[in-house]
Amino acid sequence: MWRKGTSRTAVPRQDRQHLSRRDKLAGYLAERWRGIGLSLVIVVATIWLGVTGQLGLYIHPRYFIFTTVMAVLGLAFVVASFIFRTPAAREPESEGSPSAGRRTLVLGGSALLLAVAAVTVLALPPATLTSATATQREVNSGGLDSEAAASDAAALVGNGDYERLSVKEWVSLLAQSEDPALYADKTAKITGFVLPDAADPENVFYVARFVVTCCAVDAQPIGVAVYQPGWQADYDTDDWVQVTGTFVSNPSVRSADTLAVLPTTIEPVDQPSDPYVY
C-alpha cells in the first residue's frame, strides 16, 4: 500500500542520470519508506497497547508515560513525513552509490523486514512470556531486590495476614530463612503460572511469576515450590493457578527447595492483566 502511494510522486520526470529509472525508484522507495514504515508499525502498536492497558506485557510501568508520549510524537513525524516530499530529491544525488542490483536487494530486504514487522507487531495478539523462557533462566536465581522485597514482606507478616502475601513476598521471605518452624502455622494463597521443577518435574512444580526491572527481556522467573505428585494429570505447564496450602519440609528428595507448599486446593484462574511483578 505504501508503495502505491509513493510511486506516483517518486519517478523522476525524465532520466537525468545514468542509473535507470527502475533502480532509482528501488533506492528511493527503500530510503524513503523503510524507516517511516517501521516507525509507523511500532508507534501504532505502542499507542494501542497503551490505550488498551497492555503495555505492561512488555515494559516496566515507570516507562508508560514516556513511551506513550514519544510514540505520539513519533506518530506526528510519521504523518508529517507524508506531507513533505523533499527526501525524494536526495536519492538521485548520491552518485557512485550502490549498484543497481544492490539497490533492488536493499528494497527487497526492506520490504521483507517491513512486512515481517507489520505482521508480528500489528497482527499477532500481545502475549506474556511463557515457561520456555523461564526454563532458560534458573528459578529464584535473581530478579528480586531482596532487601526491599523482604521489608515489604515483613510489613505484611506483621499484620498476620499471610494469605495476602504474593509469590514475590513469599520468595523473599524464603530467601531470608528456610526454618520450617517459622512457616508451620502459616497458610499461603498464591497465584502464578505452573512451571515444572527441573530437578523433580513429576512431583514438584513452581507457582511462578516473572520479575521485570526494565522490560520483558530482563524478566527473571521466581516461584514457590508446590509438592503435588502427579500434578501433570490435571494441569499443564503455563496454566495460571491459585494454590492454597501450608509449608512443609519438601518431601521431594530431588528438588533443591527445602520447603514446599502442600496444597489443599489448586484452582485454575485466568491470567492476570498484569502478569509480571516489579
Partner: peptide, 26 residues
C-alpha cells in the same frame, strides 16, 4: 498458537523495541 519459543522470541524482541524506540526517537 505459535510454539512457546517462537512466541517468546517475538515477545522479547518486541519488548526491546518498545522499550528502545522512544529513546531512539528522542
Amino acid at each position: 498458537g505459535l510454539p512457546d519459543r517462537a512466541q517468546d522470541t517475538i515477545t522479547l524482541a518486541l519488548s526491546v523495541i518498545i522499550e528502545s524506540a522512544p529513546f531512539v526517537f528522542l
